[in-house]
Design a protein around this nucleic acid. Structure first.
Length: 694
DNA sequence: ACGGTTGGTACT
DNA sequence: TAGTACCAA
């Protein structure tokens, strides 16, 4: 539901830039012969010529629509050039378009705050740039006025077609105008400039809207396409909105818009004006009601977020109709492809942007077969994300398994055979909760990248570490404040500390992952990686190296980071909480893990075995978390819990891989130690001791 | 139960 | 919170 936000200012200069039939342009740049020809981009042209996902303007003249199939487009426009989206790993791969979008963003972000709203759209807050221009080089002083600016459309300007250009010129340069209009005029200059830069540097055209808020800018960008820009002066807002069909407004193209029409008889934005704020709040809730009341008046306080990178990465596919997936094997085959792609994109993000994702989520849709399930939804499941194709696959399979059990749980009998009662029509995985890695983390990055490669030959195993056991220092801070600290960073300081926590968390998890694998080898005990009856390819016995060139990645990480290890070291924690707070998010810790003093090797081993014995038997909830289970088990029978660690004991650092010890110490150093910190001869394994505060 | 894929936000 | 629902393009 939309939410009302207060306007920070009613004189902001906001632009919305929208690439014209973007995918088509990308293809036309790749293949210049296509320029000027009616063109459309399709994916999967096997069935009825594929589905159109972008249509060029030449083709639109023939009536080609985005909702058509390729064959249909051919019949309407025999000359049409259909370009197929690249396919990788059996599915459409949009990366070339994503990357092209990044090229554009890099240019558009030069003049002000920039929000990447989608693969081909951005919002810009040009308020400061416009104010600066107004004070330094106001339009009226500009000598040679750019043609691109003159071609702007200014809503509400009445002029004979013959002298539109002159009228626009006068409006843009009027000396004694409303300040707000002058600012928009400056915005028009700046945007025209940016659009020309985009064209020059990428060969792409785009359209834009310039207005006082995001909603109006978005509305305007679509009014004159392609390759044009539209300005919405304050004075013409009312006449713009009044006759506008309600569904044209962003957020009102779906159910809410229909409800407005069906329940309130609102057909245009103007119709909304007759309803009091209270009435709207009454019907749609306080937030949405206020939001509606505001947008009817052209008021919209949404800020342009400063964000040029996506908040999540996802990949998936639909399996419509008979193509639905009915076996675990089929699921696994596809999850394997998805995992590859996701791992690749995550690696790229790590390399290019120094970011790591924390959560892996699996989404699926299932169709009936058995009527009881027909309306039930397949639940989404998520777990902490571990880097590396195979880990992602393993976790995703577990998530699927957990979801499937839940989906099937209410229904009758297990259809034990291969053709059980379910069919997956849509399957996807995504990585989210992406955070920046603090600067100065060269060795950490390296360690991170190398995770998958290290495994088979790791030599760090050392029982001594495992045996020296003592209790975990009791928590000092309140849990809620700690949690809040981790999850809702509020200040720069705390944010930096939070990043540190997260990185530490992940490094330690990965480290422990290694250790548990070594237990596995040493004790000849196999862990139950998955309780899948039939799944075989997330194999515990053949740790695969991820094939994608990680060595180069490492090198890049090293060289790339050297330049920037100065900043960010000065990180402080706010308010008393001087320790690094550690949270280990797990899926499966019910109250009792082994006694802290217990010999950990055995305890872990036992856990592993019990975990195995519970195989394929959801009636036996795992009570204690083996280390492996702790981070990744998505077994449905286990409940989520979080290990809370309030303090990193300095001794722990000694147990981390040597290559990152230095760096971690550098982090810890500026920390003020909590006075009640209990110093102990500790082991990293302490952090997996039970925490009664949970 | 199909335009398909990818992403965002808000609510609970 | 994790999970859901809705929205957009």
């Amino acid at each position: 539901m939309p939410v009302a936000r207060p306007e920070s200012s009613d004189s902001r200069v906001i632009a919305h830039v929208d690439m014209d039939c973007f995918y088509v342009q990308v293809e036309q740049r790749r293949q210049p012969d296509l320029r000027g020809q009616p063109t459309a981009v399709v994916q999967y042209n096997a069935w009825k010529g594929g589905g159109l996902i972008a249509v060029g303007y030449e083709a639109r003249k023939f009536g080609v629509k985005r909702s058509m199939r390729g064959d249909e487009a051919k019949s309407v426009c025999p000359e049409i050039q259909l370009v197929t989206v690249p396919v990788a790993r059996g599915k459409a791969d949009l990366s070339i378009y994503r990357n092209a979008g990044s090229e554009v963003v890099a240019i558009l972000s030069r003049k002000g705050r920039c929000e990447r709203a989608s693969i081909d759209e951005v919002y810009l807050d040009l308020t400061e740039a416009a104010e600066k221009m107004l004070s330094e080089t106001p339009p009226e002083s500009v000598e040679a006025i750019n043609d691109e600016v003159i071609k702007s459309h200014v809503l509400g300007l009445s002029a004979e077609p013959s002298d539109v250009r002159q009228t626009v010129r006068e409006w843009l340069c009027q000396r004694n105008a409303d300040r707000r209009d002058k600012l928009l005029a400056c915005g028009a200059f700046i945007v025209a400039e940016l659009r020309m830069q985009v064209l020059k540097e990428t060969q792409f055209t785009c359209s834009a809207g310039i207005a006082h808020n995001k909603m109006l800018a978005k509305l305007a960008s679509g009014m004159n396409k392609p390759a044009q820009q539209t300005v919405v002066p304050f004075a013409s807002v009312e006449s713009l909105l009044d006759p506008l069909p309600i569904r044209k407004m962003k957020q009102l193209g779906g159910k809410l818009g229909h409800s407005l029409q069906d329940d309130l008889g609102v057909n245009t934005v103007g119709d909304l004006l007759q309803f009091s704020e209270e009435k709207l709040q009454d019907r749609y809730g306080i937030n949405t009601g206020t939001w509606l009341w505001n947008i009817a008046r052209g008021i919209n306080g949404d800020e342009v977020e400063s964000r040029v990178l996506p908040k999540s990465h996802g990949t998936g596919k639909t399996f419509p109709g008979r193509n639905c997936l009915k076996t675990i094997d089929g699921i696994e085959r596809w999850l394997s492809k998805f995992s590859e792609e996701l791992a690749e994109r995550l690696e790229a993000d790590l390399e290019q942007n120094k970011r790591i994702a924390q959560t892996l989520t699996l989404h699926a849709s299932a169709s009936k077969a058995n009527e009881a399930q027909s309306q039930k939804k397949f639940p989404s499941k998520s777990c902490p994300l571990r880097y590396g194709t195979n880990k992602i696959l393993e976790d995703a399979l577990n998530l699927f398994q957990a979801g499937l059990r839940e989906y099937l749980s209410s229904s009758s009998k297990a259809h034990g055979n291969g053709c059980s009662g379910w069919g997956i029509t849509n399957l996807s995985i995504s990585a989210s909760k992406i955070v920046d890695i603090p600067s100065g983390t060269c060795s950490i990055m390296k360690y991170f990248h190398s995770q998958d490669q290290r495994y088979p030959s790791s030599k760090e195993f050392d029982d001594k570490e495992i045996h020296e056991s003592t209790a975990l220092s009791p928590s000092v801070g309140s849990e809620s404040s700690s949690r809040k600290h981790l999850l809702e960073p509020e200040t720069e300081c705390s944010k930096d500390g939070t990043k540190m926590n997260i990185v530490m968390n992940i490094v330690m998890q990965a480290h422990l992952d290694d250790k548990s694998r070594m237990f596995e080898e040493k004790t000849q005990t196999s862990f139950c990686r998955e309780s899948l009856p039939s799944s075989t390819s997330a194999k515990k016995n053949e740790p695969q190296l991820d094939s994608v060139g990680e060595e180069t990645v490492i090198k890049d990480a090293i060289s790339g980071n050297r330049s920037q290890d100065q900043k960010g070291k000065a990180f402080k924690e706010k308010q008393g909480t001087s320790s690094i707070l550690q949270f280990f998010q797990t899926q499966n810790c019910s109250s009792s893990i082994q006694e802290p003093k217990e010999e950990t090797v055995n305890a872990i081993q036992e856990t592993a075995e019990s975990s195995c014995s519970g195989k394929a038997d959801d009636t036996v909830p795992l009570e204690s978390g083996g280390i492996r289970n702790m981070h990744h088990s998505a077994d449905q029978s286990r409940v989520a819990c979080m290990y809370k660690i309030d303090e990193i004991d300095p001794n722990v650092v000694d147990e981390l891989p040597r290559e990152i010890q230095e760096e971690v110490r550098a982090w810890l150093r500026p920390q003020k130690r909590a006075n009640n910190t209990t110093k102990r001869g500790s082991s990293i394994t302490h952090y997996f001791s039970p925490n009664k505060n949970m």
